[in-house]
Design a binder for these strands. Structure first.
Lengths: 191, 191
DNA sequence: ACCTGAACACCGTTCAAGT
DNA sequence: ACCTGAACACCGTTCAAGT
């Protein structure tokens, strides 16, 4: 049976996990698919587009899970904290995950839809829309930067501690900043 | 006169600014140096080592400036804020600066020395050492992640606003978290 | 010490032609 | 619609040999 684009992207993710981003080669991929070099370009425009699709495969579950959590009426700040941990877990789950996402930002309409839904939910929780967007961007940037170090520096156990604990503490600090900022906002609007 | 390693690294930085990371080629570099392809490998072990040195060239001024600022007795939190802005400026000053640094972390002893000096100064300001290290790591990760987006997504003016203003606001939030955390710490130790 | 010349083992991408 | 076969224009790196 002929190949589907989804199978190509899926195989690419598996290859990435096996050999890492630097050794990821379109030729190794077509070998794995049992197909000629050129066949790839019927399914995909370029290696870059392919890797962007792979990045999407990694991040999508993170946003979908986010939308589920919103059903329950939990604290908005806890929502950000959980988002941070889920995003990190998704990146760590795949070899060079952070580096891949860093240079191949997935911008498919599906993710954007989830993103908008998130903002709407936060607005319902009393966070101004531009602030909510800024907060989301802040942790996304932070998590990317952090996992980048984790996966790039071979033994990233700074300060002797384990890096999950450090991550947790850092996220707590950032979210604490958000809480403090929103609290100050509430005081102003109560007058 | 023969080539020096420093000239090679300097020329590499210039080439990077001209063509970007994807088109950066050792062959283009040796052409620019007016030398044969193989000559490069007398000065440098590999392309990766070369790019790591280039990354060091970009980040070094940031840490040196930091040490100067410590001479004056300014607020530690303002120090972090300024560090964030200087790091971003340094990355933005060079094409693909963030992406380069993300995958070629400069770990030369010189930078580490500056880093240690920073921690010592923060300790003098009353911030526990492990907390200071964690805070430093937090902004460094955040800034890297943020500029990565800025330089990767072509027109990164989210929410319609300009991205410098967004950056400033995000950094303020993070530093606010640090301030709040340290304030809570002070209350505890005052008892 | 510093570079040349030439080779080696790779790449991503295109495209006519096949089925 | 989906792939083959073969080519094109590149890569990073090594290494004997030169000066």
């Amino acid at each position: 049976m002929p190949l589907q684009r989804d199978q190509v992207v899926q195989a690419a993710l598996e290859l990435l996990d096996e050999v890492g981003l630097d050794a990821f080669t379109t030729r190794a991929l077509t070998d794995r698919l049992g197909v000629q070099r050129g066949a790839l370009y019927w399914h995909v425009k370029s290696k870059h587009e392919l890797l962007t699709a792979v990045a999407g495969l990694i991040t999508r579950p993170v946003f979908e899970q986010n939308e589920q959590d919103e059903q329950e009426d939990s604290d908005w700040a806890d929502g950000f904290t959980e988002f941070a941990h889920r995003l990190r877990a998704a990146m760590l789950a795949h070899r060079d995950g952070a580096r891949l996402i860093a240079s191949h930002v997935p911008q498919n309409p599906q993710d954007l839809k989830h993103f908008e839904a998130n903002l709407a939910w936060l607005e319902g929780q009393g966070i101004p829309k531009d602030m909510a967007a800024r907060f989301g961007d802040t942790i996304a940037s932070y998590v990317t930067g952090y996992v980048l170090q984790e996966q790039t520096l071979p033994h990233y156990n700074e300060f002797g501690g384990d890096s999950s604990a450090t991550f947790t503490a850092c996220v707590r600090t950032i979210v604490l900043g958000m809480r403090t900022e929103v609290a100050a906002l509430a005081v102003l609007t109560d007058d």
